[in-house]
Design a binder for these strands. Structure first.
Lengths: 254, 254
DNA sequence: ACCTGAACACCGTTCAAGT
DNA sequence: ACCTGAACACCGTTCAAGT
């Protein structure tokens, strides 16, 4: 949302460079040629300034990447999972899908994301929302926090392995195409030495599919629920009525 | 095991450089100063050759890192989880702990690990073992493969977030120390804007602990089991008797 | 406050040459 | 087969200077 899409090389007289322009340039280069292509010099050239002008806005390259990671995290759609009327499992699913969509759109940025601490305001806001959601699901505070970590580990872990599997820099091919490529590769597994792997080739090729992403997420949620409540696992749990709050945890409402 | 620990700068006349010496040097530099310190020139200097001599053994820097990732994966202790007499959950746990120990010992190498495809022979062997283990647990082939992916996503995702949280290059501080550092940081969370996060500070500080690592793993396994069998979740399932094989999946034994 | 020119100390990689 | 010297085309970052 904060990135006005049409990130093109500027033309006309320069008035005032902004941090966002620098981040736009960095993201474009990252999308096109991966981390190697997103050099300070390359970014500067893209926005039409000398390399060292970047240091007016950021203390260094690492700070540019960190700010970019934060901005990408800020683009996650909170509305999709903030609606407390919806069943909480649906809300978690919506969050998981949204984060994946947004990050796989920028494969080159995924490494920056997970390589940094993700302790900025957007990361905190996301964490807060998820804790609230899990409180709605009647998890006790400790389990909720642990479940939140488990969720983020799963989401980011999946995405990291997914983009690493694509191998090439630049934008990701469509999901079906990547699955097909993987199938060709896994079909070559020698069945005499790796019988189980060879037999599982089709499933393994499908690891990067949305379907398997959700399958894993559901196993995770099953495990969390089973442990923490005792509610039947496949039941739709609509969560708490809107505005209501579980036993003293979280903010009190007047 | 293949790295003879005492990776010191060579002295005396050079006879024959080996790939392993190069990988040792790369790992040492990675451990000391992170990815930036592990330059081709730095590696070459450490083994006592000119920078371009490295290209006799590897086609490029990326290939060095890829080979190093493979070697580290090969150091995972298979005995710990290959024993089919032990309950399968114990075996999975042993694998998860071993991988974590081995990778957190080299924080600088974790990024290389998950940034590459992990499609080498050691990765395949590990995957094969895990599929076998899950077959022992009576999962059907498709669920077993999916569960295997879920497991690796969790293990590598946890480790990536754990080392990223440490922030600094070089070796990781002891677990307790890192938890303490995180607690200080999370205690500063403004309770008015992020009430759930502020209340969960102690649990969040503990995210990098072995205990929470295992908690997440157990939720995962619960979710997998609940879905795939119907065996009571907290029961110890010793798996199949040694040498026996579930209904036609995997290698037939004479 | 914001930007530049020039420089410094590095990179990864290639190539022709040496043994 | 294995290694080197020298070079090429880059890096990130600093500093003094300009507006």
């Amino acid at each position: 949302m904060s990135a006005p899409a049409g990130s093109q090389r500027r033309r006309g007289p320069r008035r005032a460079l902004t941090e966002d322009e620098i981040l736009d340039a960095a993201l474009t280069l990252l999308d096109r040629g991966g981390p190697d292509a997103a050099s300070v010099r390359g970014i500067a050239a893209r926005v039409g300034v000398a390399p060292n002008a970047v240091y007016t806005y950021f203390p260094g390259k690492a700070a540019v990447f960190k700010a970019l990671a934060e901005r990408l995290l800020g683009e996650v759609d909170h509305d999709a999972f903030a609606d407390r009327e919806r069943p909480w499992r649906e809300r978690v699913e919506a969050l998981a899908l949204d984060v994946r969509d947004r990050l796989t759109a920028h494969p080159g940025a995924v490494g920056l994301m997970v390589g940094n601490r993700m302790d900025g305001p957007h990361a905190l806001a996301l964490n807060e929302r998820l804790l609230q959601l899990l409180a709605d699901a009647r998890l006790d505070p400790v389990d909720a926090a642990r479940a939140s970590r488990l969720f983020f580990v799963y989401v980011f872990g999946s995405i990291v392995l997914e983009v690493a599997g694509a191998q090439q820099t630049g934008r990701l091919a469509p999901e079906a195409e990547r699955v097909a490529t993987r199938l060709v590769a896994f079909s070559a597994t020698p069945a005499d030495r790796f019988p189980y792997s060879a037999a599982a080739a089709t499933t393994m090729a499908d690891y990067v599919s949305t379907e398997q992403y959700l399958w894993g997420l559901h196993r995770l949620l099953d495990g969390i629920i089973e442990r923490s409540t005792g509610v039947p696992i496949h039941a739709d749990d609509p969560g708490l009525p809107k505005g209501q709050n579980p036993d003293g945890y979280g903010p009190k409402r007047p």
